[in-house]
Nucleic acid binder design. Sequence first.
RNA 1: GCGGGUGUAGUGUAGGGGUUAACACGUCUGGUUGUGGCCCAGAAGAUCGUGGGUUCAAAUCCCACCACUCGCCCCA
Length: 425
Amino acid sequence: MSAIQRLKGFQDILPEDQPYWEYFMSTAADLARRYGFSRVDVPIIEKNSLFERGVGTASDFFVKKEMYSIEESDGDLITLRPEFTAGLVRAYVQNGMQNWTQPVKLFTFGPIFRRERPQAGRFRQHNQFDCEILGETDPVADLEVMLVAINLYREMGYRDLTFQLNSVGCPVCKPVFVEALTAFMQEHLDKLSEIDRERLQRNPQRILDSKDPGIDDLLARAPRTIDYLCEDCGSHFADLRLLLERVGESYTINHRLVRGIDYYTKTAFEVWDQRIGAQSALMGGGRYDGLAEAIGGPSTPGVGFGMGIERAVLGLKAEEIVPPALEEPHIFVAHFGGETKIAAVEIASRLRQEGLGVRMAFARDRRSLKSQMRESNKYPIQFVLIVGEDEYADNLVTVKDFQSGGEQLQVPLDQLSHWLADRLS
RNA sequence: GCGGGUGUAGUGUAGGGGUUAACACGUCUGGUUGUGGCCCAGAAGAUCGUGGGUUCAAAUCCCACCACUCGCCCCA
């Protein structure tokens, strides 16, 4: 009988990777707060209908059955969130945030679930950092969200990032574009692959991000969303471009960057890093002015992004960025069993209460000092406190200082914590 | 859902139809009675992914399955 294995596409994040995660999370939270965002946390499970309406049944989550859903005993269908935005907008509506000072700027972290085929930088459970600005139509909101995204990578040490930018219009202008695109594609049906023909039926815009190299030329000549923008969308896009230029951010207009669903409006953007294999999109975001209404709330504009943390960590490694080390104890307490063990436990406990990190030697019985010293050497220990019978009798400990090459001296118990604290910068 | 790759101790590898499956790192113990890093000695740890087939003989060849992995689709 073999031991039970973890599920496909899921992963364990081991201690050796934690510095990267800690680095990401603390940098992200700090940056988001600097831009005026507040943290919220929402459930990882919601009613399936939230995603049905908030993600759209035309999306692959539904079409390809990529969501993890559970039918409850009363027949309700509940679903592990495949993305953050729908849940955050639900929280906005449900908690009456439309009555807070607008706009409301939120960020969150947590796991996302999609039942896709795993590969490098893509998992069935992955974690995201997510930022949203709700209740604001000003393109400055779009700009801020983009700046949080790209500056987060920069603060962590990434280089050579590019913005991909597009505007997908709104319910006023998008249909005109889709009609033009469809007409164009109908004339070139012979050049389309089977999946692209199917897309043309189901969700014509998606043809634009087809990876079929055979239609690159065709797509280059196809109608472009930005040529069909209505006045409102056009000026929003122009304003955003001006803002980006004024703050010195370069971007590439990517006419093939689209969102297939109507409540995604205007701005669509991604940040790319070419160094992490096929999954070059580090994050994706955009505006969704129709979403709140789609889930039954008051009409509320919104713009935001989701950022994959696993992918960011992959990128950190690819860029050879070394995160700060996590704090570990620098004090090790060794003993000789019996009363000395109990004394050692007391000493360790007192030092920890004083705020010092202490690693305790475990030993069911008496254990050789050699093996305890060897153990301490596996860790970044500076001081080994030796609690022996003699020391115990005299109310002191022998302190061995590895940093000075192993020098030893005796320190009275009542001075120990000060003595150590003074020497551990 | 579709393609490609890989499966040998905890990890990384070597080997390869014939019976003690190798090496490195890691782990543990010891190198005298209370002292680390180096060194030395030793130990534990693998039914060579699973099942079937070929063969006197399979971890080595064949098939299937499974797992992992990379890529497509899509996305973070």
